[in-house]
Each structure stands twice: as structure tokens, then as C-alpha cells.
Computed example of a mutant assay.
Amino acid sequence: MKQMKVFCVEGCHGVGKSSLLEGLQQSYPVLDEMFTDMPSYNFISSQSLPMEFIWVANWFQRLLKIYTTDYHPIVFADRSPYSAVYYSKSGSETQNQLKLLIKSMTLELKNHGIQIETICVQVSKNILWNRICQRLQLQQFRLQYNEDSYEWMEKTWQFFNDFDWDHRITNDEEIVTDLGDHLINKLQEVGIVVE
């Protein structure tokens, strides 16, 4: 049975996930967040449980496609299915059920050769807020995601810092020249070997 490791890079908006992963795209398949590929219905919120469930199902489907048709032993993903737990506006009990469902699916895939590990990128709050403000000047479309709110950043930062991730790395450096190598080095620091 072939084996595939999937490293899901998580964290609050502005921690540098996308930039870190861009540095790896030459060497590894990278699953993007795929929010733009989601269907839209004017009577239901994109953060409702049904819509978050569709996002989770699509995430797993794309992963299975890589495993069966575009196989690579190492895959990176910009976010894990657990992001849906936070962004779903369905209440804590339902969010916990969604978390358990995702965990069950992850464990089942492990039995079939697909090992999914989560890596939370953490940044201190003051550096994070500075990064977010600088990014908003260049990417004003992010205003629609409430990224100009310090309270939203703080709430999101808290969730990602409190959640039970497999690994954590810190990305407080102001300037990093080779972001792909930077992420690989950070992963090695916490004992993850990427070949």
C-alpha cells in the first residue's frame, strides 16, 4: 500500500501560511483553500453548517484524487478540514460534532495509507496585526472578510492558539528570503522530516 503524508498548514489570517506554501509549490503539490470554488446560495450563509460540510467534503475529495491519480508521497495543504470547525456559525455543540467527524475521517484515511498532520503557524499578536494592516493596504478585497477588525483577529488568533494541533511553529521573523526552505526548517525543528 502506498503511503502519503499530508501536512496541513493552519493559523490565523496574516500568519504567513500562503506565502510559506508558495515557496513549496515547485517541489510539492499544495492544496489551496479553494473558497473561490464553493457554490453560493443567497438564502444560506457561506458559514452555515451545510456549506462548511460541503467545503470539508470537497477537501477530502481533492485529497483522494491526488492519492489515486496524481500521487505524491508528500502533500501540503493551505488549511485543514478543521478550519470549518471555527468558521462554521452553527454553535459549539454542532462544531464539536463536526470536529469529531473530521477526526474520524482522518483516522480512517490513515488506515488506507494517507496520514494527515496539522501544523499551526503562530505569530505574536502585535506582529500579526502589523502584517494584517500592511496586507490590507495591498489587498483591500480582504475587508469583506472582516480582516480590518482587531477584535476578529484576536478571536481567530485565540482559536488557532487554543486548538489541539499536531504541531506548532512560530513565524515571527520580519523578513524571510526563501519561504519554502523556511517552512521546511521550521518543520524539522519540531521533529517533522520532509523528504
Rank of each mutant, 00 (worst) to 15 (best):
K125V: 10
Q188R: 15
I44E: 15
G191V: 01
N126P: 05
G16L: 05
M1S: 13
H182K: 04
P81H: 08
D166Y: 01
D172E: 07
V190K: 03
I119Q: 07
I175R: 14
Y82F: 14
S90M: 13
N42Y: 10
I116T: 02
R135E: 07
L107V: 01
E154M: 11
Q144R: 13
N42W: 09
L179W: 14
E22L: 09
H13E: 02
V85W: 05
F76W: 05
K125F: 13
K110Y: 01
D70S: 14
S19G: 14
Q97M: 07
A57I: 13
K99W: 13
R62P: 02
I116S: 01
T69C: 14
I54G: 03
N146D: 05
V56H: 09
Q158G: 00
L98V: 08
N130Q: 15
S46D: 10
M51R: 11
V56S: 02
D32S: 14
N171W: 00
E52T: 02
V85A: 08
P29M: 08
N111M: 03
D166K: 00
K186D: 08
S83C: 06
D164Q: 08
N185T: 12
I119K: 06
L187E: 04
M4I: 04
I44D: 11
I184F: 03
Y41P: 01
E174V: 05
T94D: 11
I132V: 14
S27E: 15
N146C: 11
T177E: 09
W59D: 13
K103A: 13
Q122Y: 01
E189V: 06
V15F: 00
P50M: 07
I54F: 09
S45F: 03
F53R: 12
G11W: 02
M4G: 05
L101D: 02
I54N: 08
V56P: 08
L63F: 12
N161K: 06
K2I: 02
W157H: 15
P39S: 05
Q25Y: 05
V9D: 06
G91M: 10
T118V: 09
C12L: 10
T177M: 06
D172P: 03
L143A: 02
I116C: 06
L21F: 07
F53M: 15
P81W: 11
E174Q: 13
D166E: 01
N130L: 11
V123Y: 10
N161S: 09
I169P: 02
I132R: 04
H167W: 10
F141W: 06
E174R: 10
M105H: 09
L128E: 08
L109Q: 03
F141V: 04
L136M: 01
S40I: 12
I132P: 06
G191F: 10
L101K: 02
Q139V: 02
A84L: 04
E147V: 04
Q137K: 14
R79N: 01
Q140A: 12
Q26I: 00
T118A: 12
K110H: 07
L98W: 11
V194S: 00
R135G: 06
I44L: 15
L128C: 04
L31N: 12
S104G: 12
F43L: 09
G91P: 06
G91K: 07
C8G: 09
V75G: 11
V193P: 04
S40P: 02
I102D: 15
M51H: 07
V85E: 12
Q137R: 11
G91L: 10
N171M: 03
N171I: 00
A77T: 04
N185C: 10
I169K: 00
L136Q: 00
C12R: 03
E174N: 11
D37H: 13
